[in-house]
């Protein structure tokens, strides 16, 4: 049975998800994800054009809080958990390209 998705698509997805996968994993994921999507055919083949997608199951709306300041975290405590910190900020390797 041919997989509903190709190795190229799986490789593209890995890049989007910021995961590196080996050739063996690429093979394996293509097959396994294919199986799961095959199983989903029972669902994808249904005509549900008129059905609304579900949000909160009990239909809560307008959940908001007052605009009141609450204490922030202690900076040293926050930065003590960081892999790299410098001058009160989080350090990262060079960024290639601007934010999208």
């Amino acid at each position: 049975m041919s997989s509903p998705l190709s190795r190229d698509e799986v490789a593209k997805v890995a890049k989007l998800a910021r995961l590196r996968i080996t050739d063996a994993e690429l093979e394996q994921f293509t097959e396994q994800l294919g199986q799961i999507l095959e199983h989903a055919n029972d669902m994808t083949s249904l005509n549900l054009a008129e059905v609304e997608p579900t949000g909160h199951p009990f239909g809560l709306i307008n959940v908001m809080r007052e605009d009141e300041v609450r204490p922030s975290l202690d900076r040293d405590a926050v930065l003590s958990q960081a892999p790299d910190a410098f001058e009160g900020r989080f350090g990262v390797p060079r960024i290639m390209g601007e934010a999208p």
Binding site: L5, E9, V10, V13, A14, L16, A17, L19, I21, E25, F29, Q32, L33, I36, L37, A40, M43, T44, L46, L48, V51, E52, P53, T54
Partner: peptide, 29 residues
């Protein structure tokens, strides 16, 4: 990793309606 891959695929352009969007409708059903 397998589930991140599956979920990323289900949300990506071109597949959203067929997979994630459809699954939310099945949820309604």
């Amino acid at each position: 990793k397998r589930r991140i891959m599956l979920g990323t695929y289900a949300l990506s352009a071109g597949y959203f309606d067929a997979y994630y969007g459809q699954a939310l409708k099945v949820r309604t059903q």
